[in-house]
Simulated assay, not measured.
Amino acid sequence: MTKKPTSQPPEFWLRGSIDGIPTLLQPAAHALLQSREELGKYTTDFPNKLLWEKPAGCASVGFHIQHITGVVDRMLSYAQEKSLSEQQFQYLRQEGDPNPKITIADLVSNFDQKVEEALLFFGQLPESELILPRTVGRKKLPSTVLGLLFHAAEHSQRHIGQLLVTVRVFQSI
């Protein structure tokens, strides 16, 4: 029995290297691009009126999108040895707060822009700097540049999975 060809491309990690991205950062770049693609797919036709709803106590779709955007932003700051700005702390405090002025398109666009910013940073980062120590947060918890960038990528994938479940709950109602 032959398989039908699928119209969907393979996941990003199976599409080959991304030009301009150091070899050791390819998995993180692939994960961020996969998150961006899946976010667009799962939020297509999702109604704005449900953006902040929490079915069965789950986090809202809006929270997940804001959170992954904020995490990538914060990890990029830490990777560059920057402290978080007041604007970043304000964003963190407001993640998930219902805001009727914000649309899904706004949130998806913000994440798209943050992924582009991350990829630009990846492309300018010498691989020799990936093992440099970095600290996280006010407690100055230990990490490395690579650890921070990997966390941003895997964390986005984790929340995309949770977002998918929340979207599916709404589709079943």
Rank of each mutant, 00 (worst) to 15 (best):
T6N: 12
P9T: 12
P10S: 14
E11L: 15
F12P: 00
I18F: 07
I18P: 03
D19L: 12
G20C: 10
I21R: 06
L24Q: 14
L25S: 06
P27M: 10
P27F: 08
E38V: 11
L39E: 04
K41L: 15
K41F: 15
K41S: 13
D45A: 13
F46N: 04
K49D: 13
L50Q: 12
W52N: 05
P55G: 01
P55E: 04
A59Y: 05
A59G: 09
Q66P: 00
T69D: 00
D73L: 01
R74S: 05
E81G: 07
E81W: 03
K82S: 04
S83I: 01
E86A: 12
E86L: 06
E86I: 03
Q87E: 14
Q88M: 10
Q90G: 02
Y91G: 00
R93G: 00
E95P: 01
P98A: 15
D106C: 10
F111R: 06
Q113Y: 11
Q113W: 08
V115E: 07
V115I: 14
L120C: 13
L120V: 15
F121N: 09
G123Y: 06
L125Q: 14
P126H: 13
E127R: 11
L130R: 09
R134P: 00
T135L: 08
V136C: 05
K139W: 06
L141T: 08
P142I: 05
P142T: 07
T144A: 04
L146T: 02
L146N: 05
G147I: 02
G147F: 00
L149F: 10
F150W: 08
F150T: 13
H151P: 02
A152P: 01
A152L: 02
H155L: 06
R158A: 05
R158V: 08
I160L: 10
G161A: 09
G161R: 08
L164S: 09
V165S: 08
V169G: 01
Q171W: 10
